[in-house]
């Protein structure tokens, strides 16, 4: 959605380049298993689409439509996310191997990667409606996994504590936005915050 939005509007205004850079890093470190294991054609396709879209979005923001990118409001310090997340992925993981640590890093980083975008909206006090749709579906994507994990726990005995805890954290971070989306955007109003 975000790649599409920038492509058709020719502007990167209102989109956090820092969040998009973090997502590119998330998908790159998560999907290194493209080289080591095959799950399904669907799984492989989606991984490639996520990686391609995240890099395309970064290219659009920082290269093609750089003049329209609102960097002055994109001031979240990403090192405050990357450094602790990097440390934690070395300390708490399923297996102390390079691929597994990178996978863990990507799971932890994804859970907080939206913070620069939410911070940017809180600074500017508004967001375009299509940007709110993007954020809603990005949040919903992980929130639905919570339901899926309960299902898989009961019916397959599958349980991944790292993914579940990170997924809960990620979903909680979206809660305030979900509230605004339902009470404002779904009622036809633009998302604007009181000054």
């Amino acid at each position: 959605i975000v790649t599409f939005k920038i492509t058709i509007s020719f502007i990167a205004l209102g989109i956090s380049g820092k969040s998009q850079l973090l997502f590119a890093l998330v998908f790159t470190t998560r999907y290194l298993d493209l080289f080591t294991s095959f799950i399904s054609l669907y799984n492989t396709s989606m991984k490639l689409i996520y990686i391609a879209c995240s890099y395309a979005t970064v290219y659009l923001i920082y290269m093609k439509f750089k003049a329209t990118y609102d960097g002055n409001h994109d001031t979240f310090r990403v090192e405050f996310l990357i450094v602790p997340v990097g440390g934690l992925s070395f300390l708490v993981n399923h297996d102390f191997s390079p691929l597994e640590i990178l996978w863990t890093f990507s799971i932890y980083l994804e859970s907080v990667a939206i913070l620069p975008q939410l911070f940017m909206i809180s600074k500017t006090g508004e967001a375009e409606t299509i940007t709110t749709h993007y954020l809603f579906f990005l949040g919903l994507y992980r929130a639905l996994y919570l339901v899926n994990w309960i299902w898989r726990y009961y019916f397959e005995g599958f349980f991944d504590l790292i993914a579940v805890v990170a997924g809960v954290v990620q979903t909680v971070l979206y809660c305030d936005f979900f509230y605004l989306y339902v009470t404002k955007v779904l009622k036809g109003k633009k998302l604007s915050l009181p000054a």
């Binding site: 998560r30 298993d33 294991s37 799950i39 799984n43 989606m46 991984k47 996520y50 399923h94 297996d95 191997s97 597994e100 996978w103 996994y145 991944d160 993914a163």
Partner: peptide
């Protein structure tokens, strides 16, 4: 053990 489990989710 978990290390042998494939990460089959996106």
């Amino acid at each position: 053990s978990m290390e042998l489990a494939k990460h089959d989710e996106l």
